[in-house]
Design a protein around this nucleic acid. Sequence first.
DNA 1: CGCAGTCTTGAGTATGGTCAACGATCGTGG
DNA 2: CCACGATCGTTGACCATACTCAAGACTGCG
Lengths: 253, 253
Amino acid sequence: MAKVAISEKIAHCAPVDCGDCPIRHRAVCARCESDELELLEQIKYYRNFEAGQTVIWSGDQMDFVASVVAGIATLTQTMEDGRTQMVGLLLPSDFVGRPGRERASYDVVATTDMVMCCFRRKPFEQMMVRTPHIAQRLLEMTLDELDAAREWMLVLGRKTAREKIASLIAIIARRDAALSMQGGRGPLVLDLPLTREAMADYLGLTLETVSRQVSALKKDGVISLEGKRRVTIPDMGRLLEEAGDDSDGGLLV
Amino acid sequence: MAKVAISEKIAHCAPVDCGDCPIRHRAVCARCESDELELLEQIKYYRNFEAGQTVIWSGDQMDFVASVVAGIATLTQTMEDGRTQMVGLLLPSDFVGRPGRERASYDVVATTDMVMCCFRRKPFEQMMVRTPHIAQRLLEMTLDELDAAREWMLVLGRKTAREKIASLIAIIARRDAALSMQGGRGPLVLDLPLTREAMADYLGLTLETVSRQVSALKKDGVISLEGKRRVTIPDMGRLLEEAGDDSDGGLLV
DNA sequence: CGCAGTCTTGAGTATGGTCAACGATCGTGG
DNA sequence: CCACGATCGTTGACCATACTCAAGACTGCG
């Protein structure tokens, strides 16, 4: 049952002690000294969400900010007529919410089961003023997100459907490689953490177009598929060409 | 002559003293106390750029960061084949450059004559560590830019050409109104600071499509034009409808 | 087995891109 | 002063890409 799976996850991913935290060195608390961590411990609490659950509704009162500990969530905007655009993909260690802001600007939806480390907003804001290490790290993370958003604007505004798909796969591949340290040469294997519809929302396409272009990339040997979600990339350079990126630049960063 | 115009601008916009600075209360230095300003004065210098000049080339060594004092610049990305996407519009008080980064990620191009207040990067970075007021303000500004970028992702990914044009005009109108405090009701008048081509680069369209849709909005009475650049908006609510936005929300904020 | 959710594929269409010609405006130099 | 070129913008004809609508396939599950 799903319930059981979640309980197991809690056991693994929701340590009471920050020292054991899997995202300790990458999250907003990464720069904190042990005395600062103790302060954070006092205002933190864990929350779990099931795949498909909406974590935050746009416009809702936000009385916490949080770090993603485990699982994946999406940040989306929706127009009145239902058109939706994903504006962020939240992975473990990513930060949710904006200090100083009362209400949420976007919907946050769990795409997998998730664990979040939440901080009550007011105490967190007070702490930010006193402990520059948190603000420093948050600035760094925000600048990175801004770069990612701008990169994505190029994808949305100027790339073809085929290039968009290739770009998305390349980005996920790069991030997977960075985490799992498969590093170097040879074929990469990865799981798409998104449905075709979610990919479409990310890319500003329809799900039919996503499906067609994935099939086309497969037919042309740029990728191969096992099942719907598992992708193998025989030649990363080729994929990057298809994405319209500099094939040399940004090698697994 | 252009040279003369620039010299005049310098006289107006490049005070030696931060106390007289037109962007004093909105730029990255907004939160600084007078002793902190004195430190900034020591590492700052002014630079002037003519309309059309490239301020920074993507990939260049960046040995300064800066605030826009006067004029307008664009932030753009370019693909190898020449497709370009604007990813930011830099107005007075906006910040240019990223502390901690060696090389520029985007092209910065002056669209009007400009004055910039530059800080040598290394001293600025050192100062950021010691004076939290700068880092705090920069975090705020970066979060605002991230919100703007995400708003723009919705425009790029999901809006029609007509909605894109209406959105751009609405955004510029809102910003003009905020500055000039025309506030309330009645027709708004504004100047588009961008050529049709620049608008196209911002919106992920071709300049022909921009031209057609501007003409269409004019024909339908949503806007009227004097010359190519001056726009009158008889009914802001109507324009926001055309943009696909909530016509109630975000009134001139 | 049938159902629901997800994905794929096809046929027809519409939106916006491409290519091309032309118009308006402005500064320059003969 | 006017002709010239340059830059910027408009408009038209045609076309390609991606969207819409629709049918059907695959998978897991009750």
